[in-house]
Each structure stands twice: as structure tokens, then as C-alpha cells.
Design a binder for these strands. Structure first.
Lengths: 232, 232
DNA sequence: CTTATAATTTCGGAGAGACGAAATCACTTC
DNA sequence: GAAGTGATTTCGTCTCTCCGAAATTATAAG
């Protein structure tokens, strides 16, 4: 059933525990954001004590999933990246399936998928993907890695930095915070929405932005959770 | 989202780990079969060493989920039974959903559900149940407990003991062994099938049984996995 | 170049869940 | 009622993942 030869379902993947998958996913995520996967950054993202992260990072380095320079942070190896992408694929397909087919509210799917991603088999995830027509993006606009570990890693500017006047379209919104997600949804700031920044107050002040036909004011924190690309 | 007041989603349920849920489910199952949930029986069903079961049973007794008479076996308390039924509901709804909606082969759904039952939220399981029209039986014919912990515990004779000549209908087949399940499926021995035993060889010998319009011969072990009721 | 601060690691320890080996108990058989 | 057999428990130990406290290192400031 499972394709053992595909890049995202290697034999070593069978032994990864749920915490390990979470660490790898978090490191991938931080690196993707351009930052260094430092001990404190990981501890905060995973809601763990730094001491715990220190220990786990050492173990993962020994297992060859990442490289660790003491006091410098962790970098995923090829094996670690593959494992992270496999988990990411499960997560995002689950999110898509739950939202699209089962009608789970879009601010709940992240937490639900967070649990299921460690339990669902590759075969099941592939079935879900197939039922959805192999989507390339999840409900929050995040790209879904293929079974072969290919993923669109294009970096997009956040709404907080989008130039005033330029027309843009929402590419993705962060799914980490359910409350913010509900807020952004209420503002119609979903993937695909057209936006145009009218004004930005200085010193990290509020942003006047046209979302579709509605003029909204949003703060910088929320704006940083929204990623924008130019209209084609 | 989750109905905290329903019998199968109490607050204590939030702290049950996957192994604990597995123990409770196994004890419920063994008790349902009329047997005593003895250390060795549990060890065999859970594929663990008896020493491990001994330790866990003590912990569960302290937590008030079961009562344990040393050398006599374990009996679920009301709290333990409720927790077991909650897990059983998740398991059987997941089985139903995977088989019906996602087309997972009926001999695979058990193993898949075994993992997912510890990860899926009550809200999600209820969504799946609703999408299926709140089924009362899973694909193997096992009754699905309601959210309030009500379950049909009617005991049915196995095909191995069904009287010769009497017309019967298949109520359920055991889902524990995927290989046997595939075998029974090939023989059309699925819930709803009509059967009539033509002859039974003595000393646990093979059984001649009419399944639908086909005359089959099956052994006693397979026959014990099939439960029969009289035709109305 | 010393010192303060912040980040990181080390150390000792805890809890869950598992194991094998050895001791204990129950029950049957003589 | 003594002895043997099989089930059960106890004991010491292991791995994994986490923690707080203390020690260490890096970095920036004086």
C-alpha cells in the first residue's frame, strides 16, 4: 500500500516519534522564515523549556536528522528535511480534507491536523489527497509537498511590508493562531483576496488596507501573518 | 465544539494516553466475550509481556478506571467503561468513515482506525458520524456506541456453534485479523449475508455452510470469528 | 580588557511505559 | 498435605521525553 521507494516514505520514517516529527517540522518552519533554528526559538515554538530542546537537538543530530553547531542553532540534513516535508504534507492534506470535505472550521483544522498527522498512514493521506484532486495548497494557502518531497518554497512579502498603492493578492495566512485566523477570516483576508494598502502609520502603526471592496484597519502583528504577491 | 457534558467526553478523558485507551478497550472486549480480563489474556491481546500488564493494571486501578483482584483479573469501573466506550465509538466510526467515504479496504480499516482513534477529537468523530447518517454498526457489523455511552451488547452465537439446518444471517465478523477478514470477504461472509449450516464434522472439524447461494467449507477458527442471528 | 547580560548547555531527576529474571501465589495431582 | 505447574507479581532496569537549577559560553558594553 505504502510506496516505500518514494522520497517521503522511507523506511527510517517508520521510527520517528510524534515529538521528533514536531521538532523537525518546527526547524523547517523557522528556517523557511529565514531565521536560525536556535534553541530558544525552538523552545518557544514548541512550548518547551530550552533545556529540553537542547537534549532533543543533540539526539536528533546523532540520528543524522540535523546538524548542530553549539550556540549557533540547528540545520536540517537532507534526511531531516525529507522527514519534515513528509510530516508537512500529511499536515496540510489533512487540513485541506477536514476543511473541504468535513466542514471543520478553518480556525480549527490546524489543531486537529496537528494530532492526526502523527497517526494517519501514508496510504490514507494519499487517499485524501486523491479525493481532493491532489491540491497544491492547503486552506491557508500554504503549499503542499508532493509525495516526492517537492514543495514550492517561494517567499512572499507580508502585508506588513507590502508597498502602499500596489495591488496584491493574498497568498497565505499563518495557521498557527486560531484566534487570529478567525479574525482574519472575518476581515475576508483569505487566500485569493485582492488587497491594496492605502496607508501605513509609522512606528509599526495600524495599516489601512482595501480588502476586496471593504476598507479595513489592521495592526502590524496581524499584518505579518498575511503574505502577499503581486497580481499577475 | 466538544460536548463536555456528554457521557463519552468527560474532562477526565482528556488525560488518557493512547496505551491506557488500548488497555481499557481490550478489557472491555474480553469482558464482552464473557471471559475474565486476566493478566495473561491482556498481555496476549495487547502483544505485551505479562509483567508490563501487571504494572499498568495497578496504575489504572489507582486511577479508578478498573478494579483489580490480584490473581483474579480486572473489571472496569463505571468510569473505565465510559472511557472504553468512548474509544470504541471513535474506533468504529473511523472504521465506517474510512471504508465508506474513502474506500479503504475493509481489511485495512481496523489497523488505520487503531491509530487514529487516539488522535481524532470528539468533534471530528461526530462530524464523521453525521456525514455517514449516524450509523449504528461499523463495516464489520460491530455496534457503535452513542455519544451518551449507549451500546447494543446483544450477544450472538458464532457460526461455529450455529445449529445445522437453521437459517441465519451474519451479524458481524471479527476485525482483529486482516488476513482472516480478507478470507471471509472472499467467501461473501459479510454482515447481512444469509447462511445455513449443512453439516459439521465432529472434533472441531470443518463446517459445510451455504452462504447466499454458494456452498462453502470453512474451518472452526474462521467460523468462530463470524456471529450469527436467526432470521426475523 | 573586564564585566554584565543573555543564550545555551550540562546535570540530576521525574514519570510513563516497556522488558526479563526471579519470587510468589493458586490450584491440581498424587 | 506435599509437590509440581502455570499464572501472576515484584524487582531492577531501560528508553524516551520532559523539567528546574546550575554552570558555561557568547556577545555587547563600558
Amino acid at each position: 500500500m505504502t510506496d516505500e521507494s518514494s522520497a517521503l516514505a522511507g523506511p527510517s520514517a517508520l521510527t520517528l516519534t510524534a515529538p521528533v516529527e514536531d521538532y523537525l517540522k518546527a526547524i523547517y518552519d523557522i528556517q523557511q522564515g529565514g531565521g536560525a533554528a536556535t534553541t530558544n526559538a525552538l523552545a518557544e515554538r514548541l512550548a518547551l523549556a530550552p533545556a529540553s530542546v537542547s537534549g532533543m537537538v543533540r539526539r536528533l543530530a546523532i540520528q543524522g536528522l540535523l546538524e548542530h553547531e553549539p550556540y549557533r542553532g540547528a540545520r536540517l540534513t537532507a534526511a531531516g528535511r525529507t522527514a519534515a516535508l513528509r510530516t508537512l504534507r500529511r499536515h496540510r492534506i489533512l487540513e485541506s480534507y477536514l476543511a473541504t470535505v468535513l466542514g471543520v472550521p478553518w480556525d480549527d483544522v490546524h489543531a486537529e491536523a496537528e494530532q492526526l498527522e502523527h497517526a494517519a498512514s501514508d496510504a490514507l493521506v494519499d487517499r485524501m489527497a486523491h479525493a481532493l484532486g491532489d491540491p497544491r495548497f492547503d486552506p491557508h494557502g500554504a503549499p503542499i509537498p508532493t509525495r516526492d518531497g517537492v514543495v514550492d518554497e517561494t517567499w512572499h512579502t507580508t502585508l506588513a511590508e507590502w508597498p502602499v498603492g500596489t495591488l496584491g493578492t493574498v497568498m497565505s495566512v499563518s495557521d498557527k493562531d486560531a484566534v487570529m485566523l478567525r479574525y482574519l477570516g472575518d476581515l475576508e483576508l483569505r487566500p485569493g483576496a485582492m488587497i491594496q494598502v492605502h496607508a501605513r502609520a509609522p512606528y509599526d502603526g495600524p495599516i489601512d488596507v482595501l480588502v476586496g471592496t471593504q476598507l479595513r484597519q489592521i495592526g502590524p502583528t496581524a499584518a505579518r501573518a498575511v503574505r502577499i504577491a503581486a497580481v499577475a
